[in-house]
Simulated scan of single mutants.
Amino acid sequence: MTWINSLVFMIIGMVIGFLVSRLTICSNSHQKGLRKELEKSRYELEQYRQELVDHFAQSANLLDNIYRDYSRLYQHLATTTAELMPNLPEQDNPFAKRVSKLSDISIEQKVPQEPPRDYSDKSTGILGNANKTGTIS
């Protein structure tokens, strides 16, 4: 009788072990699928960020080209106005005023007023989330 009980318990143990292993293998494969999906999403996010950086760099370059073209256009109009209308006083030439403003702006942009800071205004990370009592919320 003890052999029969041992055999029955052994069969029940094998069935329970089989069921537990099947459940853990299914969740493990589900975790692998989620991990692959996460890696794919991270890769796509990194590609999107790189495209965004490239887009802003190209936009800044195009705006810089527009600025230079407008500066050259105003300078051309100011010089041709002075050549075509030599008796026109300087204060009546509408383009001369704009050319001087554009040159002032370009000088201000080239010479920084203060050195760049190596810190930000707001605290970040763990200390950024601390409230006034000193506890982290």
Rank of each mutant, 00 (worst) to 15 (best):
D64W: 05
Q113E: 14
N131D: 14
G125S: 03
E90R: 06
R42E: 13
C26T: 14
P94S: 01
D92T: 01
E83P: 00
R98Q: 13
W3Y: 08
I136V: 14
H55K: 11
E46G: 07
G33Y: 00
N131Q: 12
S21C: 09
K40P: 01
S6M: 05
L23W: 13
R72I: 02
I105M: 14
Y70N: 05
I66F: 05
E108P: 00
S41R: 12
E46P: 01
A96L: 10
S21T: 15
I136W: 10
R98E: 15
E108V: 09
T2E: 14
L7W: 09
R117T: 11
V8K: 14
S6D: 10
M85G: 01
D64H: 09
K122Q: 11
F56C: 06
M10R: 12
N87M: 11
S27P: 01
Y70T: 03
A57G: 03
Y119K: 10
W3V: 05
A57R: 13
L77K: 04
D118Y: 10
S41N: 10
Q91L: 04
E46V: 07
Q47V: 15
N28T: 10
I105S: 03
Q109S: 05
M14A: 15
L73F: 06
N93D: 07
A82W: 00
N93I: 00
Y48L: 10
Q109D: 12
E108C: 02
A57K: 13
Y43H: 12
N61Y: 08
E114G: 00
I107F: 07
S123L: 14
S71T: 08
A57M: 10
H30S: 15
G134R: 01
E108G: 03
K132P: 02
Q50K: 15
T124V: 11
Y67A: 12
E44I: 02
Q50G: 03
L7G: 03
V99Q: 02
S106I: 08
L84C: 12
L19I: 14
N61T: 10
H55Q: 12
S41M: 08
N28A: 10
C26I: 09
S59R: 15
M1D: 11
R68Y: 07
Y48E: 11
Q113L: 07
T124P: 01
A130Y: 04
S103K: 13
P94H: 02
Q31K: 14
R117Q: 08
S71G: 14
M10H: 05
